[in-house]
Amino acid sequence: MALAAPKETYAGRVFEVTIGTSKTAVFGGENVLPFHKFDGDTPHKPVIAFEIQDVAPEDWPDTVKEVYGDAASDPVKWALYCQNNLNAQAIALRLISTHPDRENRSADDAAKTVKAVLDSIEVPLIILGSNNVEKDATVLVAAAEAASSRNCVIGKAQEGNYKTISAAAMAQNHKLIAMSDLDINLSKQLGILITQMGFEKERMIADPMCSALGYGLEYTYSVMERIRLAALTQNDVIMQPPMLADIGMYVWKVKETQASEADLPKWGSLKERGIAWEAVTAGAMLLAGAELLIMRHPDAVRSVQKFIEEF
């Protein structure tokens, strides 16, 4: 007997988000589960942003550092290298040096870096704080101003600082990342709080918190799947922003991306292992529903792009 294809259609649709000005990147817009083009529309492929920092990446493992070499000594050079040599679709600049436990650089310093990077690149920019709730509230406000009218992504707004950060993103016309702690209800609650301030839900990107392969990946995977199902089946508009997976910062600190083959011969080549760790984490996040990825290793990015091309 021939098989009647059991297609699914849904009431909801993920918002389509465009970032950048001169060169833009677009993601979201689908009314089906990830890559389920056999069920409905998948107008855009996921976008991968290369992560750079405002200081040299001393804390990154050698296997990633050596790919960038001298280019990573300066954020502008680094951004240009990603854009011109690695064909980055977008750049994610992490203002890590503003963290009070690190260099503790000022919001003004951060704004200058943002401006310098923006003046030199054409591709869209994602501007990330150091993930310190209090400091981000001042740093990201200054950064949003410095990036005024460039249609950047600002993040991450969290429960403890969303008011100031969303207000700045709104005033300067940016997109906003709303990050919550790995729970579908917390994600929804933060979305509601931010939209209640007058921030348009269509300009939001949800970050339900990433985790690395082997280190809680299944939680992120299922929270993302549940958010996407709620967006589609229940047509829950608060759940309809596209989702971000901030992969690199979680992956490149786990043991599997650091331990040498000499120490752990059973684990095989460190170089490939690290790349595979980032690529497989990214692949799983894509299957769960992420449309925007932030990654570090160019070889991992290339592999994930090839994977995306296969759908």
């Binding site: 684990w267 095989g268 490939e272 299957l287 991992a300």
Partner: peptide
């Protein structure tokens, strides 16, 4: 590396057996 990604898809999305071309240790571990 692409093979590892396609195998990941098979693992997450419903295959019971996935056939690989080789078994480098890093790939198996991931």
């Amino acid at each position: 590396m692409l093979e590892a990604l396609v195998a990941s898809l098979c693992i997450a999305k419903y295959s019971s057996i996935v056939v690989l071309s080789s078994i480098e240790k890093w790939k198996s571990l991931a």
